[in-house]
């Protein structure tokens, strides 16, 4: 914990006194733990004198900010127009099926994957597309999903 606090302090220091720094500051803070916990936002508020309500307001407004812990790998499924007309729903169905996610659930029970729907990844010519971490997979079929997920399978203990 002390380790995280000192890293937090270093990030806060980096943006100290810069105008309009709240969003990049929060982005960097989020990178430390993968999400913004209530404690982190509270600490950020104390250190920067920005009201915690404002920090929470920004965190809930932008889709990149996460208030819950994430899986080891983040799967982004593109729900853009080109992907939609090319069968993104079938890909989503296959993903949820293979990850055994209950309706409304985003993170697998072993904590290995988090599934997020995004508006457009800008690779429309490869539709339908998913992105796992920073790798993009295009021209997908539902049948192709299991072998892609296998590449990211977690070998160690469950979390």
């Amino acid at each position: 914990m002390q380790n995280v606090v000192s890293k937090l302090d270093a990030v806060i220091q980096k943006y100290h006194g810069k105008k309009g720094a709240l969003i990049p500051l929060m982005q960097e803070v989020q990178d430390l733990e993968g999400y913004l916990s209530h404690n982190t936002m509270q600490y950020l508020s104390e250190q920067t004198n920005v009201p915690v309500a404002e920090i929470f307001g920004v965190a809930t407004f932008y889709s990149m900010f996460r208030l819950k812990a994430q899986g080891r790998h983040v799967i982004r499924i593109c729900k853009g127009t080109a992907c939609h007309v090319s069968g993104a729903n079938g890909i989503l169905y296959s993903l949820r099926e293979n990850l055994q996610l209950e309706p409304g659930e985003e993170t697998t029970t072993d904590g290995n994957f988090t599934l997020v729907e995004v508006a457009c990844l800008g690779c429309c010519s490869l539709a339908p597309v998913i992105m796992i971490d920073d790798q993009t997979f295009g021209t997908l079929t539902p049948e192709a999903i299991p072998s892609i997920l296998d590449k990211f399978a977690f070998a160690g203990d469950t979390v």
Partner: peptide, 25 residues
């Protein structure tokens, strides 16, 4: 460079400026 944080409405110019200033867009 200012990186967006994921909000379509920030393409609107007044929302974009609010976002650069570090507020809800």
């Amino acid at each position: 460079i200012k990186e967006g944080a994921g909000a379509f409405v920030c393409g609107e110019e007044t929302a974009l400026m609010a976002s650069i200033e570090g507020k809800r867009g």
